[in-house]
Design a protein around this nucleic acid. Structure first.
Lengths: 200, 200
DNA sequence: ATCGTTACCAAACAACTGCTTGTTTTTATT
DNA sequence: AATAAAAACAAGCAGTTGTTTGGTAACGAT
């Protein structure tokens, strides 16, 4: 017989996770986004949340699991926000523009989780590379779908076009500084520089 | 064939450097390109060239200096090759296409030095960040000049267009696998996806 | 009151990092 | 053959890394 659990109070559906697990992830995301994954130490993270290094291991069983959690949360948040944003648009090009602008706002305006998902490449944590890539792909699906629905000249390679756009978008993180052109504006321009050449 | 040996031990232009300094840089470039700068240890490099770790310090006084040397060599090689390639072209758009194709060939076909200059961002070595950025900028000048000479619609932001193109180009390193579309072809397409929209 | 779980601290560990030091071998020039 | 410089070795140092272990205070439920 299995032990029957009478749920009195807590809901153990998701692990344990106290109220301090989230601040911990926030701190990790902030540091990963600023310095990179390998350049951030467990001591960095612990001191950011006001804990001792060893205490982190009560909440997560390894540094890799922290990165995985950050990635997961980034995908969830961004995907949801993006889908609800483009839902209002009918026109595929409009959708692409909206998606690009929203994505750029996320990675350029202090959304540390999004910045980590985009900026920390899966191969920086080889042992969980596959999981990270899967999460990333789950997000990129949005752009795949949008671009596949685009009316294009038939000599335009949709996959190559998508990789070009994503590459341009994601590399903004390396040069953008607060005070530059607004993220929204950058997104609008990027799409404009491509549309007339490829639309069919 | 015959080795040209001049009695006078000349070549004080660059430091000392024996014949093993270059293989050492080759090994470093290979490892930096494959695993990243911080993820590559002095022991990795030394074992790749068949030396003991300490012996590296006869040729370079620090790990950072190795990275600096790789960067420098990458800029020299690539800039020279690129300039002589585009010299034959008169048309600015033709120049841009040629430059893009040549650049892509370099970073996608085993040119480890080019891959390091593009893939290892200056902030990964904070203490020499400024020197690395300067070297990078010296290379990007080529693209700045080409794009400035492009006949564009007057509502096209040249700087933004350049950053878009460079971003798209340089991020190919994260998804390209040997056996995909030829680097040249990728470059040709990228420019094609932009030209009609921006040309004026 | 007792118990078990939660959430942390305190201290350390083994492995790894870039780098230094003193010594030996190799090479080239006389 | 002698000599000095160039090039590499052998060993280790001090600091950092992710992680482990054992303990303990707090607190709600029994």
């Amino acid at each position: 017989m299995q032990k029957k659990k009478i749920a009195t109070k807590s809901s153990p559906i998701i692990k344990s996770s106290s109220n301090r697990a989230q601040p911990l992830l926030d701190a990790a995301a902030k540091l990963f986004a600023k310095k990179g994954y390998n350049e951030t130490t467990m001591r960095d993270i612990s001191s950011e949340v006001g804990m001792l290094p060893g205490s982190l291991y009560y909440h997560f069983k390894s540094k890799q699991e922290i990165l995985l959690a950050v990635y997961g949360q980034a995908v969830n948040d961004l995907k949801t926000r993006l889908e609800s944003t483009i839902a209002s648009q009918e026109d595929p090009w409009g959708k692409l523009e909206l998606a690009t602008m929203t994505h750029l706002e996320a990675i350029l305006d202090h959304n540390n989780f999004a910045r980590v998902m985009i900026g920390v490449l899966p191969d920086k944590a080889p042992e969980i590379q596959h999981e990270l890539t899967t999460l990333r792909d789950g997000y990129e699906t949005i752009f795949v779908d949008i671009i596949n629905s685009l009316p294009l000249k038939n000599d335009v390679d949709k996959k190559l076009l998508r990789l070009m756009i994503m590459g341009a978008i994601n590399s903004t993180q390396t040069w953008y500084h607060m005070g530059d052109t607004e993220p929204k504006e950058i997104g609008r321009e990027f799409i404009r520089y491509i549309r007339e050449s490829t639309e069919g």
